[in-house]
């Protein structure tokens, strides 16, 4: 025979998963938003306004930027914050508007996979970017490379 346990009167309601996930997600949106304003406008200013402005933008310009640890960190932060910020925003949209549990789950899976793929690929490019790969054919190399 099983015994039923009766909760003591006035004991707090048992809540499913007492976590602060939604709180942290909400807070992250605010904090990352502030950082992104600085990062994105700084990025636009340096790329489009400083010096020759947009006319200076080419492969060499990007290669030069990623040779500098400052811009590596800058772009890495921008990539991660923007991707997580956007993914979390889309997650709330899916939660708000997908009515069926199955649809909601698959949309979110697709979202997370796409976000993870973009973040990993972007991070890899920022850190392993080499404008003059040693084994490449000479005609494919930009003019500033020693082999070209």
């Amino acid at each position: 025979m099983t015994t039923t346990t009766i909760a003591a009167p006035r004991s707090p309601r048992r809540l499913r998963g007492r976590t602060n996930t939604e709180l942290y997600a909400w807070l992250f949106m605010r904090v990352s938003g502030v950082f992104l304003i600085v990062l994105v406008f700084g990025h636009l200013f340096v790329n489009l306004m400083v010096g020759e402005g947009i006319n200076a933008l080419d492969f060499a310009f990007v290669a030069g930027k990623w040779a500098d640890p400052l811009w590596q960190v800058w772009d890495l932060l921008m990539l991660w914050l923007a991707m997580i910020h956007g993914t979390n925003g889309l997650r709330t949209v899916i939660n708000d508007y997908a009515e069926r549990d199955q649809v909601r789950m698959w949309l979110k899976m697709l979202l997370y996979v796409a976000a993870a793929f973009t973040i990993i690929l972007g991070t890899l490019v920022i850190f392993t970017f080499d404008p003059c790969p040693a084994e490449a054919a000479a005609e494919l190399l930009p003019s500033f490379c020693p082999g070209a």
Binding site: P12, R13, L15, R16, G17, R18, N20, T21, E22, L23, A25, W26, T92, N95, D96
Partner: peptide, 17 residues
């Protein structure tokens, strides 16, 4: 504290847009 805990739920105040 109890009421805040209830509203900290996934369907609580954080769903407010």
């Amino acid at each position: 504290e109890q009421r805040l805990e209830i509203l900290n739920d996934r369907e609580g105040v954080w769903r407010c847009r």
